[in-house]
Structure formats: C-alpha cells, structure tokens
C-alpha cells in the first residue's frame, strides 16, 4: 500500500475467517463490519471515540472501530462480539452477563464484552479496581455499572475455573 489511492484491496481475518475486500480509503472499520459484512453486533454509539460501543479486538488489541479506517485493518486479525460464541454456546463471560444482569437495553453490551474479554486475557484475575479501569472507555447509560462489574468478576479467576470444572 505504498501507493496512494482512494480505494484499496485489503485482506484480513474476522473471527478466524479469511476475507478479502476492496474498500474506499474513507471507510471506517465499523461501517465495513456492519454494512459490508452485515455483522451488526458491533454498535455505533457516539461515532467520536467516546463511548466504546464499537469496540473490537484487532491483532490482540482493544480498539474503537469508529476510530480506524477499514484500510488500516489490512493484514490484521479482527475479533468481534459474534466471534465469542461461534457455535452458539455462550462463553463464561457472556453467561455471567446473563446471570448477573450485566445489561439492560444491551446497547453497550457488545463493546463491554470485547473490553472484558481483552481484560481477562491479559489479567485473568482482576481486582474490582482493575475491572473498572478496564471498562473506562465503555459507556453504559442504563446499569450504573455495578452489575457489569459483578458479571466480569463472576467470569474471572477462580469463579471461572470452578464453572469450567
């Protein structure tokens, strides 16, 4: 991509599946995911990088997909909320959000699930303070966060290992 152009052919994996696409340079990654791929799990809340509803994991890093161009995803591995439970069986984290009432309207939930998945990979046994810091970039207008924190705590560390056993 050394040459400047208004469209680019890109290649990436999304939830493990290889994809090729031709994208306009001005296309945001979130629009590519939602409108071209039709994966509507990734939400748009603010479109200014402030709410985290559009959070996805790109090459192992948590990013807001409204703050990145689709062309920048070339050569990367993208994970979206749809990839968490590919066969329909909920992950312990998703299960915990269900059991602990970690959502009300659910608008923020995909972004929070990605932020929490990122956290638990990096730190399988986070403290409450670490959980709150890790979801700092994800705004929820409904829950007041208490049940979200509880959900992540329930899915973390010893609780999660017990559940798996």
């Amino acid at each position: 991509m050394v040459d400047a152009a208004t469209t680019h052919a890109i290649e990436y994996t999304i939830n493990g599946e290889r994809q090729q696409a031709t994208v306009p340079a001005r296309r945001l990654l979130v629009h590519h995911i939602r409108d071209t791929l039709g994966m509507k799990g990734t939400h748009i809340g603010c479109d200014t990088g402030s709410c985290g509803a559009c959070s996805v994991i790109v090459d192992g890093r948590l990013v807001k997909s409204c703050m990145m161009l689709a062309a920048q995803a070339d050569g990367t591995a993208i994970e979206t909320v749809e990839g968490l439970a590919p066969d329909g069986a909920l992950t312990p984290l998703q299960q915990a959000f269900n059991e602990q009432h970690g959502l009300q309207c659910g608008y923020c939930t995909p972004g929070l699930l990605m932020a929490a998945s990122f956290l638990l990979r990096r730190n399988p046994n986070p403290s409450e303070a670490e959980i709150r810091r890790a979801i700092r970039g994800n705004i929820c207008r409904c829950t007041g966060y208490v049940n979200i924190v509880r959900s992540i705590e329930a899915a973390a560390g010893p609780a999660a290992s017990e559940r798996a056993a």
Binding site: M1, V2, T6, A25, D47, C66, Q72, D74
Partner: peptide
C-alpha cells in the same frame, strides 16, 4: 460518519513516508 473522499497510503519506511 462518512469522511470526505481521501487517499490513503501505508509506506513501509520513513523515506517513503
């Protein structure tokens, strides 16, 4: 949001950039 039309390039080196 739709951005205005823009070109994009991803150089490999500082020289190219």
């Amino acid at each position: 949001m739709l951005l205005e039309s823009v070109e994009y390039a991803r150089p490999d080196t500082v020289e190219q950039a």
